[in-house]
Design a protein around this nucleic acid. Sequence first.
DNA 1: CGTCATCTTGAGGAGTGTCAATAACTGTGG
DNA 2: CCACAGTTATTGACACTCCTCAAGATGACG
Lengths: 258, 258
Amino acid sequence: MQTHYPSVLRTLPLFAGLSEGERSRLVLGGKIRPFKNGEPIFHYGDPIAHFYIVCEGAVQLFRESADGHEMTSDVLIPGDIIGETDILQPRKGRPFNATAAKDSALMELPISWLRETARQNSMLALNLLAILSQRTHIASIEAEHKATMTAAQQVACFLERLCVLHNFDPRGFELPYSKTLIASRLGMELETLSRTLNKIRDHGINVKGTHVAFESLDAMESFVCDHCSISDNCREHELLKERIVESPASKTPSRKQA
Amino acid sequence: MQTHYPSVLRTLPLFAGLSEGERSRLVLGGKIRPFKNGEPIFHYGDPIAHFYIVCEGAVQLFRESADGHEMTSDVLIPGDIIGETDILQPRKGRPFNATAAKDSALMELPISWLRETARQNSMLALNLLAILSQRTHIASIEAEHKATMTAAQQVACFLERLCVLHNFDPRGFELPYSKTLIASRLGMELETLSRTLNKIRDHGINVKGTHVAFESLDAMESFVCDHCSISDNCREHELLKERIVESPASKTPSRKQA
DNA sequence: CGTCATCTTGAGGAGTGTCAATAACTGTGG
DNA sequence: CCACAGTTATTGACACTCCTCAAGATGACG
């Protein structure tokens, strides 16, 4: 039996408000499994027996159509949960493929367990509701972005969120995964992404190879927010500005996203 | 006080599994409000005090960006719920505008009430979870469609779902709302939709004015499902086929969608 | 019979996808 | 340390889809 658990489990929104006892009881029902880069976690249509908490690395969620085209719906990072939407709605099988996009560690928990707990512990059910509600909101924002923004604006917006989510230094950071994966995530072709990265230099984003540097947050802001109707979305800009002002030279800020 | 309630309230998934007593207690806390075609229900950013159940008519949910561009995220019909995602996550305000797209009747209920009930009645919380989970799944399908299907395929797919959801006769029905609204819903321009409707005649869909007739479900199926990776999605085809086989001349089938 | 909203049709252009060739990077084994 | 193969990324030329702007057609309604 494991003696130490990843720190992400302590700040997990899913377990927020639960007592230390309940939390550890839940966690004891699962085990941590390592996955090599590129290793599949499960496939589309597989039976749904477990859900996962990403502890380390990154996980690609994707589907592929008959003609072999691959469509990435999300890339998860530590703290994210896989399959929590399938706790109640018993589908025929997994609605997407999941593959490790880096060497990763996932905590695997039986889904039946979570289902029972949600039935009895209203706190957990409400946490789930909050997570799903947030997910729906983000999906709606992304749909709007795809419909109203150019490829350049989508890429700029993506790089901002990437920087905030991973707590990178806005003045310079390395892309955490391949451009192929990023392009797929954004629903565009690799060639389009490659060309786009050269065009957004005019808007304060300097990309060379895997290195990204934000050189003018003001230029970025006016560029990205123009065609976006969601004022919430501009929170990323605020967070970036705060970061740059507060810690102009720190490479590993200590706080997590709010 | 009202003496009769719309029939949609009896089959509402949100209230599934609740006793008749609990259900009527919930419903007594709200009132039915009529809205004229085009009348706003609430605006983006408004404080969130109520949620709504669509009883009659249709409701357009949309946002508009600074440049005046309007983006419809959904069109709701009787049985759908507005604002159930905001029960827990207390946002600054409404995440979209809501406007009656026809003369409509909505049941208005205080959101605090639902919040309290969800805390105490785990059945209601689980129903909410199921609804949100379903919504997330649909959002993911639509995102994929926007990314991988041509305008023609999206229109064909939309018309199918329209027919199934509204329980229309596949062999001939009238569009329930304007083409302008449909185009906005599909994230395309009215001109593109207009042109597209003439092109999909080759694929078994005959549209003239507001009249739609499905003339070859097989042609439609091979056309729509080609670039779609979600096998669930083809359930619409199955339902259409059943409908045509079982009730070749019925105009008002008696059963609802599963 | 006008007036207004809705829809259709046309021509031109911006933005992406597609195909193909080249370049840069990564790891392996001699 | 270098040569090699395999993956990943860049760049160019071209086609196609969809958006934009503009003009006309259709339909609803007083």
